[in-house]
Design a protein around this nucleic acid. Structure first.
Lengths: 144, 144, 144, 144
DNA sequence: GTGGTCTAGACCACA
DNA sequence: GTGGTCTAGACCACG
């Protein structure tokens, strides 16, 4: 798994890890039941303290995204996102508003903005399909 | 100027203010020499402590983006080239991607997502018009 | 309030603080509604990091012993110890067992042990009464 | 030897073992040259990992309290003066005070507390007798 | 000034 | 090797 930390963004490192792992899970690049990188090696790879990764994982666990078995490792859960519908909608609305405000600040028109949204939806969809295919290929190779 | 604070994003509030004002300045929506909202009303509008807004402005001043004239207010400084279109587009794309990933994670379908985007565009448009009207009213009151 | 930390005991510092404040509260030396020492000065007095004291206070809050009002301070709660009876009994049993095992290890006989228990009950009772009297005196002095 | 671990006390388990074995040695209940329980059964009895008991023994060895003869077991070393009576009494008093303070905090009355003390004395006596009997049985089996 | 959070290093328990 | 905890320093939001 390839994560990228921006040390200057001001967004806490542990939240950057949380967001990116949520994204990886959402995109299908990591399947339910699969194991996440262990805390210590990941911390080393990201040039970050062990505890920072641990905090990200603990946050993900309390969000119901992963499951952690002490002494064994951390694993992606099956039924994540058991949040109530209203709460989920609020979370998403906040993200959308932020993008719209950014567009407004940058003087991007409503039409340009919508065009860009469709473009990104397609781009990210393609990426997700790519992941699924590569997993299929792995499976097929193992079968042979 | 329409600013939006996300209290749960983890990004320090004063940095959210800094970023958004930088974006407004970068886009050319605010011209050099024009005045920024003063601290007390802005703090009230954003439901944030005055110290926090003051910290954002002081940060912007030390970055050379604005200039504070004690007793008179804060003004956008001269030397600010608007960002190139590609860079602005990248900033916006990042925000959009984040919203899309959140939607995936929350298992919101593409159609629901687009519906929500339109909804928010309208909602925020209304809000902005509300602001402008109230400003108009203020002006009219001052005129009397 | 006078607290004493043993840096070599192996018992986490924050728990030593928790235990001693519980003892102070239990003994009547601190009354419900009264304020505890602020985190920063207490940390300095004990030669301990601010966070260590903060962790102790946060533990005490989650135990329902104190109440913390951000920006104002920490205060002893009225109805602390709302633990279920079975849980309380278990906690106490553990403490008693520890004392009995210590007596056994030190080859103190059952009768000697019981004599010592009565002695300490009386000693600590006297101490508590002392606190209450000194508070009464304070009140009376204020009244005059 | 009867050891009791308190898993919630915050004191590291290996230190609880160290302290209690030091107490047994200090009281003279275990004589120089006598053997300590071996690691594996003790770990099982205490519901603790073998590594943890091993760490306690290794700590005791480096303190010079015991001696490990690989393949043969662990033995109490010679040079150990029993503690003076006053010191032993102080150690015990501390434990008793802690239990009394806990009782105060949990709003357990003096009579309830004393009742509980007697109850635990009997309970732990029974347990110890149980241990001794099972040892007797083992001996008898060995004799056969 | 108040309490709260993020990052980091060292140590603990366990497989 | 795994994850978890305690202590500490620096920064944040708020009154």
């Amino acid at each position: 798994m390839l994560l990228k930390i921006n040390f200057k963004s001001g967004l806490p490192i542990y939240l950057q890890i949380v967001d990116q792992i949520k994204a990886v899970a959402a995109s299908g690049a990591l399947r339910p039941g699969e194991s996440l990188p262990s805390i210590r090696p990941l911390a080393e790879e990201l040039h970050v303290n062990r505890n920072t990764v641990a905090k990200a994982y603990s946050e993900l666990e309390s969000l119901g995204v992963i499951e952690t078995l002490p002494g064994r490792g951390c694993f992606l859960k099956e039924n994540h996102s058991a949040l109530r519908k209203a709460v989920r909608r609020k979370l998403l609305t906040d993200e959308i508003d932020q993008a719209i405000v950014q567009a407004h600040h940058l003087q991007v028109s409503r039409d340009e903005f919508l065009k860009l949204v469709h473009e990104r939806l397609n781009a990210l969809d393609d990426k997700r399909r790519g992941h699924e295919e590569s997993k299929e290929n792995q499976k097929n190779q193992e079968v042979r």
